[in-house]
Structure formats: structure tokens, C-alpha cells
Amino acid sequence: MTDGDLLRDDARTREAFKRGDRWALTEVYRVYYPLVTTVVTRGFGGFRGFFNPADRDDAIQSIFAAAFEQKARLRYNGLDPYTAFLRGIAQNVVRRMLERRTKFMRTDGQPELEHKEVETAEAQFLDAEAIQVVRAFRETIQEPVQRQILASYFVDGDAEETIAKDLGITRYKVRKTISLLDRRMRRYLKQHGLP
């Protein structure tokens, strides 16, 4: 997205987005999601980004909700990069969130490196033993198809149809395997006394 800009460069998608067509909104969400996560995790100005998942996820949802309002959709001029327009919306949403709350520290320092935040975030909500236990779950999945579906569906975000095609199985089998994996995860957590 450094060179191109979907909504500026693609008139069809832009018009559909302005009309509120679901496919265009979906495309915009997917394409500009990394930009929004950068704003909420790394911050801007003196704000160093939200730290915990609850705040980050809330901010992501609030930013897209604001960007997808009809007035906001129609306000985009189609000439400037949408990245700049969306960044403006994102920063306004975050400022409003910060104004409503006082628990976030503002500093003038540089943003922390992402890998450091990630490690700290996980450690803050789970003790070391729990981290070991949940990380070990994947080792319990021996069946190659199940391992592949765990990664493709839950981590890479591939659609069921794509997974089915890649693995040469039916979509129904993919759904069944996702259900099976979900049950195994719940049973595993229960066995280890985790919620």
C-alpha cells in the first residue's frame, strides 16, 4: 500500500464503498486494516499506542465504525490517498478515547519496538506456566490436515473455500475440522484448569 491506494486508484471500488456495498466495505476493511492496527499499536505524536488487547481491539472497531458511517464515506474526495483520510479519522477516534479516559500514559518518547510490546502483552495477562501450557497445544495436533487448517483458518484468515481447494477436501469437511479443533481447544483448556 506504499505505492497504490485502493480507494483513490480504483473508481469502481470507491463508488461501491460510497454506496455502502458490502463487498467494497469488506475489501476496504481488509486492505486498510494494517494501517489502523499501526495507529492503535504504535500511536502518533506523543501517544505511544494502546497496550492491551481490549483497548486495541476496541480502538480498531471504533475507527472502522467511524470510517464506515455514511457521512464519512461520502466525505472522501477520491483524489487524496485514502490512507491519509483514514489516518485522520483514526487519530480523531483515538483522541476521543483518550479524552474519555485517564488510564493511558502519554509520553514524548519514541514508540517501543513492536516485538517488545507483544511479549510484554502476553506475559501480563498469562503467567509463565499458562503461557507454556497454551503454547504446547499445537504440539498435540498430529493430524497434518488439522494442523494446516488451524494455521490457515485461525492465523492466516483463509476462507473455507480456499482451504478446501488447497487441501483437496470439501468445504463441509473444513467446517467439521474447525469445529473439532474448537472442541479440542476447549477440552485442553479445561484439562489444564484454564478458562
Binding site: 480498531i60 472502522f64 507483544v118 495477562f125 499445537r138 484468515g157 483463509d158 483448556l189
Partner: peptide, 30 residues
């Protein structure tokens, strides 16, 4: 925070951001 951290670690996603599965849920809700 605890629930999503567990989920992300279980499936092997980055703990600091929503897994692809969560992202789809968030997209659908939007």
C-alpha cells in the same frame, strides 16, 4: 485480555493483535 491472549497463543497467532479468526469476527460485526 486473558481470553483472547489464550486464544491467540493456542492457535499460534501474534499475542498483541487479533488472530485472523478474531479479525473476521470484528469485520462481520462492523
Amino acid at each position: 485480555n486473558r481470553s483472547v491472549s489464550i486464544h491467540r497463543s493456542l492457535v499460534g497467532a501474534s499475542p498483541g493483535l487479533p488472530s485472523a479468526f478474531e479479525r473476521e469476527r470484528m469485520l462481520l460485526a462492523t
